[in-house]
Design a binder for these strands. Structure first.
Length: 421
DNA sequence: TCTGGGGTCCTAGGACCC
DNA sequence: TCTGGGGTCCTAGGACCC
């Protein structure tokens, strides 16, 4: 009988900020999206104030000031490092761990010599809390979907742990568990289910799998089986090869000139190259898109994209910039206030092995040496220490993303270490 | 004035082939 | 007016996730 635990950090980004400032412990805390646009993480206190997931900052600015909400820009260097520390702890509890997201991991408990799974989970929780400072919840079930459901239900329990191994207990919890909170049921499916008067997880579990397939594709059918304790979604302890890679950003302020757009896209292409090289991958095409803001629908709208092929798969930044620039050239049209652009690639592959023929030119070699030197300089002295000229002086450009309330990178930069006084 | 970013998976429909 | 059947492959778009 399979048994999986799902552990996740409570209000994870907010909890990371609290670890480094004890004074935040009793205050509502929120963390903002890129560009300081909207709230993407809220503590229980912030939720109680009525701050919604994804709510734009300009709508809650007054509330945050009046209620003394601690507001942070997102600090992914910090969250990523805290995540690594947590997973290092999970590895000591089980050999089979799947890192599902930055703050969630599935852990196989079926093969562990554990009698009391609730006690085991409580130990996992308290160890994680003690060693990293991050509060968590743990849900256990025979399938991933039931483990997720147990985890969600555990959030309301004082112990922060719920074991749903027992079918009677599953039935009890699912009876009033909102169907929209089931893993994999989004807004569209929720609407279709409501039309069938299916509102709770228990009703969804008892639905005819064939009907589920009709209205929600095979994804929906799998959910029914998983809720019935029949596993359809396997634990993946080794991360599969990634398939695509993208760098997309909203601008700090609207872009109206071609020069700014070229610099922004060159900057994104530079990041894309860094990412590809970090993963040891390459691509033979890039798609560039740019669009105006859908929220200003009284303004002229434009939403365009173009794919440019690259003759040979590469992760060389200068080649990527050249391809991206061709797309910008073709796509650019003035008279619009662009709010966002990005560069996307799919079908990633390993970089081609350089040909070492007698009369081969050495461009290939030289390019990869330049990239390696650039990556090393940026690793040692901070991102964007060395950038291609096409990017311009990004720090002074209008498109630069806003991070006005970012906390220090406490755990990953020596010069930003916290001090004890 | 100000509204995130980066992924995966699935399906329908068109292009193309024999 | 008649004008097959059945494969495969690719892409765009929808849905969902954190």
């Amino acid at each position: 009988m399979s048994a999986l635990a799902l552990i996740d950090g409570n209000s994870f980004y907010c909890s990371c900020e609290r670890v480094f400032d004890a004074k935040l412990e009793r205050r509502p805390v929120i963390v903002l999206s890129n560009n300081d646009g909207c709230a993407v993480a809220r503590t229980a206190e912030a939720k109680a104030l009525g701050i919604k997931m994804g709510q734009p900052m300009f709508q809650i600015r007054d509330l945050c000031r009046d209620s003394k909400v601690a507001v942070f820009s997102s600090n992914y260097a910090l969250y990523g490092d805290m995540s690594r520390r947590m997973n290092a702890i999970y590895d000591t509890f089980s050999p089979d761990v799947e890192i599902y997201s930055i703050d969630e991991s599935f852990i196989d408990v079926s093969r562990l010599p554990v009698k009391d799974r609730t006690a085991w989970a409580s130990d996992l929780r308290s160890t994680t809390r003690q060693w990293t400072g991050i509060p968590t919840c743990v849900g256990i079930g025979p399938t991933k979907t039931l483990a997720k459901l147990a985890n969600k239900a555990a959030k309301k329990l004082p112990g922060g742990v719920l074991d749903l191994s027992d079918p009677a207990e599953q039935t009890h919890v699912m009876a009033d568990f909102p169907v929209g909170d089931v893993w994999g049921i989004g807004r569209a499916s929720q609407l279709k289910l409501a039309a069938l008067n299916i509102r709770f997880a228990g009703q969804l579990r008892d639905m005819d799998p064939k009907l589920a397939r009709q209205i929600m594709t095979v994804v929906g059918e799998r959910i029914i089986h998983e809720l019935n304790g029949r596993p359809c979604i396997a634990l993946e302890t080794v991360a599969p090869q990634r398939k695509g890679c993208a760098v997309t950003r909203s601008f700090g302020s609207r872009v109206t000139t071609k020069v700014e757009m070229e610099q922004a896209v060159a900057d994104y292409a530079t990041r894309l190259g860094e990412k590809l090289r970090r993963h040891g991958l390459a691509t033979d095409h890039v798609t560039v898109f740019m669009h105006t803001s859908q929220f200003n629908d009284d303004e002229p709208q434009r939403n365009v994209s173009m794919t440019v092929d690259i003759p040979e798969a590469t992760n060389d930044t200068l080649t990527l910039i050249k391809a991206a620039r061709r797309a910008v050239d073709a796509l650019w049209k003035s008279g619009y206030r662009y709010s966002k652009a990005g560069i996307i690639t799919q079908d990633l592959m390993p970089p081609p092995i350089p040909q070492r023929a007698l009369f081969d030119n050495l461009d290939h070699d030289r390019a990869s040496k330049v990239m390696a030197a650039m990556d090393e300089a940026n690793r040692r002295w901070g991102r964007a220490t060395v950038v291609p000229a096409a990017v311009g002086i990004a720090a002074r450009s209008a498109f630069t993303t806003k991070f006005e309330m970012r906390s220090p990178r406490f755990t990953t930069r020596w010069d930003e270490l916290p001090e004890c006084r």
